[in-house]
Simulated assay, not measured.
Amino acid sequence: MNVSVLGCGRWGTFIAWYVNKAGHDVTLWGRQGSKNLQVLMDSRKNDYLTLPDEIELSHSLENAVTSAEVIIISISAQQLRSFAKQLSQLNEIEGKTFILCMKGLEADSGKRLTQVFSEELGKSTNVAVWVGPGHVQDFVNHIPNCMVISSENIEITKKIVQAFNSDLIRFYYGQDLIGNEIGAATKNVMGIAAGMLDGLNYSSLKGSLMARGTREISRLVRAMGGNDLTIYGLSHLGDYEATLFSLHSHNRKFGQMFVQGEDFGKLAEGVSTVKALKELSAQYHVELPISDAIYEILFENKDAKKTLEDLILRPVKFEF
């Protein structure tokens, strides 16, 4: 199968490496002038892995899209709408399968990424998401994990899983696109919260964060029409180890450095997701106390220690 991966950051480059390892012909695309692409063209390496010679590197979006049957997109979630507009101008995108390999929500609207993508390319587009736990650093050291493919068309889901399954990543069929997308995006917010607890030397409270965080997001998923049990699967709770505890997690590290007054300097997708959750909380009339607390700390200059203590020590109530 011919596969193109659009986006040559840490995750996109790994996906290209992995899909090639799974036996497919791969083109990895980066924007003209991309530093990441230039480094790969010069050395076939980045900080995490070495690309095999048979992976084609390209900055021609048209060539990458027209030559592939399956197109995997791995870019910042907030750039997806403008990028999808760009894709919609290309010829020969009918009948192709697109997989969104990113975790986020559109900050201003709260929309899921498949909604954003379908609005720009049309509802008939075959679009799926690839979500769940795993770090590049572990995968390239042959440490396996489980992930999820989800779409609104079970045949598309099955086709992708069968094509990409391996001993390194065991894929599950996702049956609830809403729950899987919301779950994958919001675990980054919980990651920021966990990092803040680490930075305040309150790491022992991460167990409480896990318990209450899943309940909070499951209520939102149910209100949006998804299955609230999905939050307890791989896309959300299953990703907590990689997000709330791992030293590799960008979102956890961002939260830790934020409360310590330091600049993280890399993308933490959970920051934009917090804004989106503010919008969804209002749209669906669902209380999201943890998300609200992180929003207040990040955007309203509330004191992190007091805000998180007040959150944990809320008035006594029944647990369920």
Score class of each variant (00 low, 15 high):
129 V>L: 09
247 L>H: 04
124 S>E: 15
224 M>I: 05
122 G>Y: 12
110 G>H: 02
214 T>E: 08
206 K>H: 11
213 G>Q: 04
238 G>R: 07
111 K>R: 08
114 T>D: 09
174 G>N: 06
186 T>K: 00
236 H>I: 03
166 S>E: 02
246 S>Y: 05
235 S>Q: 06
172 Y>E: 14
173 Y>H: 08
232 Y>D: 08
231 I>R: 07
223 A>I: 00
162 Q>M: 13
191 G>H: 01
178 I>A: 10
201 N>V: 12
147 M>K: 09
213 G>D: 07
204 S>I: 15
164 F>D: 12
149 I>T: 10
217 I>Y: 01
144 P>G: 12
214 T>L: 10
148 V>I: 12
228 D>W: 11
126 N>Y: 08
194 A>W: 01
161 V>C: 11
129 V>N: 09
184 A>H: 00
128 A>Q: 07
243 T>D: 00
199 G>F: 09
191 G>V: 01
229 L>Q: 15
130 W>D: 12
142 H>Y: 14
150 S>W: 01
197 L>M: 15
236 H>T: 09
186 T>F: 01
130 W>G: 12
131 V>G: 01
191 G>K: 00
209 L>G: 01
179 G>K: 13
156 I>F: 04
168 L>Y: 02
141 N>T: 15
162 Q>S: 13
119 E>F: 05
209 L>R: 01
245 F>N: 15
211 A>Y: 11
197 L>C: 15
143 I>E: 13
204 S>G: 14
245 F>Y: 14
226 G>W: 14
190 M>F: 05
132 G>R: 12
141 N>P: 12
207 G>A: 15
150 S>D: 07
174 G>E: 03
249 S>G: 06
161 V>N: 08
183 G>R: 02
234 L>M: 08
191 G>W: 02
173 Y>M: 09
152 E>R: 13
237 L>E: 02
138 D>R: 04
193 A>P: 08
131 V>A: 03
113 L>F: 05
240 Y>W: 04
189 V>M: 06
227 N>G: 12
238 G>N: 06
226 G>P: 14
235 S>T: 06
167 D>W: 04
218 S>G: 07
119 E>Y: 05
223 A>H: 03
217 I>S: 02
188 N>R: 00
195 G>R: 06
243 T>F: 01
220 L>E: 00
216 E>R: 04
148 V>Y: 09
236 H>C: 13
135 H>L: 03
125 T>P: 13
212 R>M: 07
146 C>V: 10
116 V>D: 02
165 N>M: 03
223 A>L: 03
248 H>Q: 10
162 Q>I: 11
226 G>Y: 14
212 R>Y: 08
227 N>Q: 14
228 D>K: 12
218 S>P: 06
153 N>S: 05
168 L>T: 01
191 G>N: 02
206 K>S: 09
175 Q>S: 08
117 F>T: 11
213 G>H: 04
153 N>C: 04
185 A>D: 03
225 G>M: 05
223 A>P: 04
149 I>G: 10
244 L>P: 02
248 H>V: 04
198 D>S: 11
234 L>W: 00
192 I>T: 02
181 E>L: 02
233 G>V: 07
132 G>K: 10
169 I>R: 11
161 V>Y: 03
